[in-house]
């Protein structure tokens, strides 16, 4: 043991240049595309830069951008929309994705064909997803209103009404990304050993008990991973919403990403957009940390 450690330490020193060589490209990419942009955003967020006003990038305003954003309603409105969208989308994705994973795990006839089709939702480019659903939501001849009218329920212009646009967009996001949860949970399921189930059966546990007390805890890493990935992705949804409503009607589907995009590229208030970006980064960091903490704490209790 001691000999091995000494041996390893020598290796470590000898391999220093490998570490540098192997890490350098990744770190270069990180600096170029994350760290530098972050510092740059931080810097310009203290200025009053408007792309249409020459020289405005040198106007230092301190924390004024942040103060303005926090004072005016549009940021809070978009934050609220983002959080609603993220919460419901992630919730339904987790439930449906996990259910689908259990369905696929049964090795039914034709499961692999169905699986391929289900997965196709997630590989379609979001911009196409948006187009296809816009068509299906069309109040005149769209499929959804047709089905509703067949069922005897009056259709409505889902994407054009402030009250229905968010749920309609959530449906699309759930459709698009439940398959991802399915794939990850399926991976977790296939990693479980069958002995666990068998011993539980022998102990006389019911199916439901087995599920709650054995399967779910064992699936925790898979569930946590899909929860985190989904939360991050739902929080930053852009393409689909942009293609379907562009944030409308009015501002009723303008999430943070769309607000930031419009602020920077429609109104050219880049400093303000940068401040918003950093604020939203703080929000998502807090959310992800909370999710992580809750999962960790439960783990502690279970043991």
């Amino acid at each position: 043991m001691e000999a091995e450690q000494r041996y390893r330490r020598i290796l470590r020193i000898k391999d220093k240049h490998y570490v540098a060589l192997f890490l350098a490209p990744a770190i270069a990419a990180l600096i170029l595309l994350t760290i530098y942009p972050m510092l740059y955003s931080l810097k310009i967020s203290f200025f009053n830069w408007n792309l249409t006003v020459p020289g405005s990038q040198n106007q230092f305003v301190g924390l004024q951008n942040y103060a303005e954003i926090l004072k005016h309603g549009e940021f809070w409105h978009s934050l609220w929309i983002t959080i609603c969208f993220t919460f419901f989308s992630v919730l339904f994705c987790m439930v449906i994705g996990t259910s689908l994973a259990f369905l696929m795990f049964q090795n039914l006839k034709g499961a692999s064909i169905v699986r391929t089709f289900v997965i196709s939702a997630m590989v379609i480019a979001p911009i196409i997803v948006g187009t296809a659903w816009r068509l299906m939501y069309n109040p005149g001849w769209g499929l959804i209103n047709y089905f509703l009218s067949v069922a005897g329920i009056g259709g409505r212009p889902f994407l054009a009404q402030a009250s229905t646009v968010l749920p309609a967009l959530i449906v699309v996001d759930v459709w698009e990304w439940s398959p991802l949860v399915m794939v990850i949970v399926l991976a977790g399921l296939q990693g479980l050993s069958p002995e666990v189930y068998e011993s539980a059966r022998v102990d006389g546990a019911s199916r439901w008990q087995t599920f709650i007390h054995i399967t779910l805890p064992l699936l925790k890493p898979a569930l946590l991973l899909s929860l985190l990935i989904r939360t991050m992705d739902a929080f930053r949804t852009f393409d689909t919403i942009y293609a379907m409503t562009g944030g409308g009607p009015g501002r009723s589907s303008e999430n943070l990403n769309i607000l930031m995009y419009n602020t920077a590229f429609e109104y050219f208030q880049v400093s303000k957009a940068a401040s918003m970006a950093l604020l939203s980064l703080i929000v998502i960091t807090v959310i992800c940390t909370l999710i992580f903490r809750v999962f960790r704490r439960n783990e502690g209790e279970a043991q």
Binding site: T34, P37, R236, F238, N257, A277, S280
Partner: peptide, 24 residues
Amino acid sequence: LIYMIFLGSMMVPSMTFILPQFKE
């Protein structure tokens, strides 16, 4: 630290740095 930065940058909303990246 390096690994934490990697993990952290997974969270960054794509739109966050689009402007600095554009300028870059």
